[in-house]
């Protein structure tokens, strides 16, 4: 309940649509509020799909102090990788359960990085950015994923490699990832500057600013 909300707000009392029944999931399927189950894998991006070849692919972590850590494609795939099976939730309301990925944990990539940063701005080929707290990228919560469902990650789903942070709305899992800028202060990314939520927890339905 928010004080100061306009009288036309319906936050406390939803309007019931007579005759609307909807299509419920079986009770053992748990979805975040406002989400529905997608069978396919929809695509959401703001522009054309960048084509990045692995021979010129590079991943970079820059610290707030200006230190730089680089990985080539070959170096990335030689790092210990994990197989991840996880549910994903897109802010456009679809959720997909049990998706299977392979990638390198950010814990591995950040292992030797010296930083006092609290925030990260993730950067992609094509210019996309998204921000999140650094603590959401560590402790087994985030990966640089390069395989999906047993195959190479296709360009429309973010290949050759994308960030995977499945506990947040999927726009945080930046496609075509090329690096992370570590920051002492939070800096909004692409969708976050366009009215979307700074953090984006699907279970708290943080879709837009102020949610």
């Amino acid at each position: 309940m928010a004080f100061g909300a306009p009288l036309s707000s319906t936050d406390t009392m939803p309007i019931v649509s007579p005759g609307f029944t909807g299509r419920r999931q079986s009770p053992d399927v748990q979805l975040p509020p406002g989400q529905y189950l997608a069978e396919d894998f929809p695509v959401l991006t703001a522009g054309p799909t960048p084509r990045v070849t692995t021979d010129r692919w590079q991943f970079t972590i820059n610290t707030e102090a200006g230190q730089r850590y680089d990985w080539s494609w070959q170096q990335l795939i030689e790092l210990p990788a994990e197989k991840i099976t996880t549910d994903i939730h897109c802010v456009t309301k679809w959720s997909k359960l049990g998706t299977r990925w392979k990638g390198v944990s950010l814990d591995v990539l950040l292992e030797d990085v010296e930083t006092a940063a609290d925030f990260a701005l993730v950067q992609s080929y094509g210019g996309y950015t998204t921000n999140l707290p650094l603590e959401d990228l560590i402790d087994g919560q985030a990966w640089i994923a390069y395989r999906y469902d047993g195959d190479e990650l296709t360009p429309e789903h973010g290949g050759p490699a994308r960030l995977l942070v499945p506990h947040l709305y999927f726009w945080k899992s930046a496609k075509w990832v090329r690096g992370i800028q570590l920051l002492l202060e939070d800096e909004p990314g692409f969708w976050e500057s366009a009215g979307y939520h700074d953090y984006g927890d699907p279970w708290r339905e943080q879709r837009y600013q102020g949610d």
Binding site: A2, A5, P6, S8, S9, T10, D11, P14, I15, A194, G195, Y208, Q209, G210, D211
Partner: peptide, 13 residues
């Protein structure tokens, strides 16, 4: 103006 700041409340339509 686009209402991109502030809270997007549910409204009656």
């Amino acid at each position: 103006r686009a209402a991109v700041s502030g809270r997007l409340t549910w409204r009656v339509a």
